[in-house]
Amino acid sequence: MTEDPFVAHRSLLFTVAYEMLGSAADAEDVLQESWLRWADVDRAQVRDPRAYLVRIVTRQALNRLRTLSRSREEYVGEWLPEPLLTSPDVADDVELAESVSIAMLTVLETLGPTERAVFVLREVFDVPYGEIAEAVGKTAAAVRQIARRAREHVAARQPRVRVSRSEQQAVVDRFLAALRTGQLRELMEIMAPDVVLITDGGGVVAAALAPIHGAGVIAQLLARAKSRVVAGFETTPVWLNGAPAGRLDFDGEPSAVSLTVEDGRITRIYVVRNPRKLTRLDQPAELAR
């Protein structure tokens, strides 16, 4: 019996939806809606099931994204993407790993829904302009213009230098060790002077409501947070969104930590503390292009 195309391409479809939405929960909802639509399709009329399914998922994700953009404007504090536990194998596809990184997904959040869809489909999945045009309801010429603007927008905001997996791992290990032992000087040395800390508590748990700037301020803040722990503090190296990262447990409450590294030092620290976004830290997500 031939495997249903939806099942065969599920990892790809989930990845498309996740990159467009920044939320695994919303991506799963989109896949459920897309499956219901696929179930009603006359398969004999579908020449390219993969392209057809990507189009369905894109349309459903766009609908969801337009709804979410309004609710995210009312979000308490900073909004960060939902982190995914991933296997080290995801990093073997450098472009995929970069596209699902917390840093990139945070940049994609600054694009409009259509721009984001066009960027993801073209730059990550190399979908032809004509197919993107069908998915987003624009002409191919308009899609080319949108893609160019989106590329320029992202290029101006993403990290300037790619770092190797080994360099990222080394910096993450140093950061977690300094945090675990409370070495303030080591924390300051591993961070760039203009480092930025962004935390997401969603109004559910304690978190800064705005970005915090500066190595000295951030090092002291992290050291104070650790000193307040009563029941225990654990740091665990993990792979999140295709890169070495960390999991922190303060008094039994987990946090996911993702770092942006440039020239051997940390320039961005993303800390997700909202428990609603930390349900995917035990089972690796299946991502694919």
Rank of each mutant, 00 (worst) to 15 (best):
L259I: 00
A155T: 15
P88M: 00
D89N: 05
T15Y: 11
P49I: 06
S34R: 01
V230M: 06
Q60P: 02
A142R: 11
R116I: 03
A178P: 07
H213T: 07
G214L: 04
A288G: 10
V230H: 01
S101L: 03
G77H: 00
V100S: 12
E189I: 05
V271P: 01
L53W: 04
V261L: 06
R157P: 01
N241T: 02
N274Q: 10
V16N: 02
L12E: 10
G264P: 12
S101Y: 06
I269Q: 05
E95M: 02
R47Y: 11
A39L: 15
R50G: 09
A17H: 00
L105I: 00
E3C: 02
S11D: 15
R151P: 03
A39R: 15
P254D: 04
T235V: 15
S255T: 05
R70P: 00
I198C: 07
V100W: 07
L187K: 09
R149H: 13
A91K: 01
V16W: 01
A225V: 00
L84C: 02
D48F: 14
V271L: 12
L287S: 07
D48E: 13
A140I: 01
D194C: 04
L68E: 14
R160Q: 13
F250H: 13
R10M: 00
V161E: 08
I146A: 09
E33V: 12
Y75R: 13
I102D: 01
V230C: 04
N241W: 03
S255E: 10
E98H: 03
L21F: 06
I132F: 14
G137Y: 02
E234R: 15
I56D: 10
L96C: 09
V127Q: 15
A117R: 12
R276G: 15
T67S: 15
A39T: 15
P159N: 11
L31K: 13
P211W: 08
D200Q: 02
S227A: 15
E109Q: 14
A207S: 11
A288F: 11
F14L: 15
E82L: 04
A27I: 08
L222S: 06
L62Q: 08
H213D: 12
L31R: 14
R144A: 13
V46I: 14
G182V: 07
F14H: 11
Q60D: 15
